[in-house]
């Protein structure tokens, strides 16, 4: 089933311009929230070893929050643009480059995860040289519970997954040449 997008004429230019601005700025907003949040953890907690409580992850509610934000990003994108996305030769090349790079980086991250999992000192309170990625996430969440009561965690999950749904799950796309200009 192909997704059908109906052009909504009631969406005026100003609303589209505001959406467009937020769409372009949203990845930067993630960084603008994430960097101060990380700096706050660093300043208040330092590099101290974290003895996290395992119940913080996996947390189905944080997962549901991310999934909802992902869908929201997609559907806000459909409503916000109100027209077919235009693809050009350059954007197709860029998109392919991003996807290919993402898979290479993910494979390297997963090798790190494997090494970290093998290094983990099960049942001890002393840090290993490397830890699984989830260790760092659990610690960040553990610290955030004390710092902001999970506000930063929830905010970053919502923003990150919104951006993912908004940018990586676009609506219908056509080559620019086949889309009539307005």
């Amino acid at each position: 089933m192909k997704p059908s997008i109906k052009v909504n004429p009631s969406i005026n230019r100003t609303a589209r311009a505001i959406y467009r601005l937020f769409h372009l700025a949203s990845p930067v907003i993630v960084v603008l929230v994430g960097v101060p949040a990380g700096a706050l953890v660093l300043l208040t907690k330092g590099h101290e070893f974290c003895t996290y409580k395992t119940e913080y992850l996996p947390d189905p509610w944080l997962f549901v929050l991310g999934a909802a934000a992902f869908f929201a990003g997609h559907y806000v994108g459909l409503l916000g643009t109100g027209h077919v996305n235009k693809t050009s030769e350059a954007s197709v090349k860029f998109g392919r480059g991003v996807i290919v790079t993402a898979f290479l980086v993910t494979s390297l991250i997963l090798v790190f995860e494997a090494i970290g999992s093998a290094e983990i000192a099960v049942g001890t309170t002393t840090p290993s040289q490397l830890e699984p990625i989830t260790y760092y996430v659990r610690c960040a969440i553990e610290h955030d519970v004390e710092i902001s009561g999970l506000v930063f965690t929830r905010l970053l999950i919502i923003l990150t997954f919104y951006v993912a749904g908004n940018w990586f799950w676009p609506g219908r796309s056509q080559p620019a040449a086949s889309v009539p200009s307005k």
């Binding site: 898979f103 290479l104 993910t106 494979s107 390297l108 997963l110 090798v111 995860e113 494997a114 999992s117 093998a118 699984p132």
Partner: peptide
Amino acid sequence: GVRGSLGLAFCCF
């Protein structure tokens, strides 16, 4: 965890 991560890493590669 280790073997699963290596399996997924190989998939991505």
